[in-house]
Design a protein around this nucleic acid. Sequence first.
DNA 1: GGGGATAGCATGGGGAAACATGGGATACAA
DNA 2: TTGTATCCCATGTTTCCCCATGCTATCCCC
Lengths: 160, 160
Amino acid sequence: MFLSRSTNTLDAKGRISVPADFRAVVSDDMFEGIIVWPSFDGPYLEGGGISLMRDYQGFLENMDPYDDVRNAFERAIFTESKRLAFDANGRVSLPKALAEYANLDGQATFIGLGRRFEIWNPVDYEVQSVAARKMARENRHQLRLRGQPTRPDQAESRGG
Amino acid sequence: MFLSRSTNTLDAKGRISVPADFRAVVSDDMFEGIIVWPSFDGPYLEGGGISLMRDYQGFLENMDPYDDVRNAFERAIFTESKRLAFDANGRVSLPKALAEYANLDGQATFIGLGRRFEIWNPVDYEVQSVAARKMARENRHQLRLRGQPTRPDQAESRGG
DNA sequence: GGGGATAGCATGGGGAAACATGGGATACAA
DNA sequence: TTGTATCCCATGTTTCCCCATGCTATCCCC
């Protein structure tokens, strides 16, 4: 699961180190690398492992094959996605078009969002981050986990 | 389940022992360590095992994927979380940014809260603690357990 | 019940591996 | 040939892995 945030350097050759945490997340996938596409919700990139693509594929295949929305999703996600393989040091080469789409220049911020991640211009993201924390705080009462409060057959009963 | 309170040393390298009780709680998780993030409700840290994150993930995935509140929670929790693995002695390295956020210096107090825990500056927590006990006392009549009275054949007898 | 042995816990420090990054060499395409 | 993409190597920094130590709670034997 993708967690945490970190800002890395996008060098003159268009290379950027994928945070080690993120590499660990996709290390079980067949493909040693990440999939990245321009978000259709703003000037940033979205990404994940190849298994995320399979999840999207599974979801879309349950829709009507000629449904316009399905078509739109397929074009917006699959068609625009790039498969970026890690080099020996855990970097990827980010195509210019993607870097330009997200206004990346010199630095880029990877943010973990569980199943996927996003890549932002660090300054742009800082604005998002502040707004998000404010909104999260204002709506914190909605954040209620349900289900079994405790599962007595699990860890907590272990003597230690 | 995370219970009790204990204060441990945050050493010069940024390491701190996670209380043994807490380690036992997460010992059934795949990931041998804890997840910690800055609370969006005050200058302290929140944490739990990887399974807590999965619970949050399950909760959030039931919301509209591009809902602003969902987005805010994802950014406030997942993005700000760090995955801290235990070393051989049960310690974690607490990133500087997190320690600074919670005003931690030399000592930190872990407080168990059932499914989650918090990490506080010991002095700050003392203030909270007094206020919390007062409020608990004033509202003690609301503390009503429902359901089965007691099941002596379960967790509490499994000590070991 | 007392006293010693033992295992787990919290903490300190040194060294090795991993990480992020830069630069050069090589291969391929325009 | 020039531009571009990929691979390989070098390097400073950070992290984390391993060892050592004192303390405490527990157990066991007497």
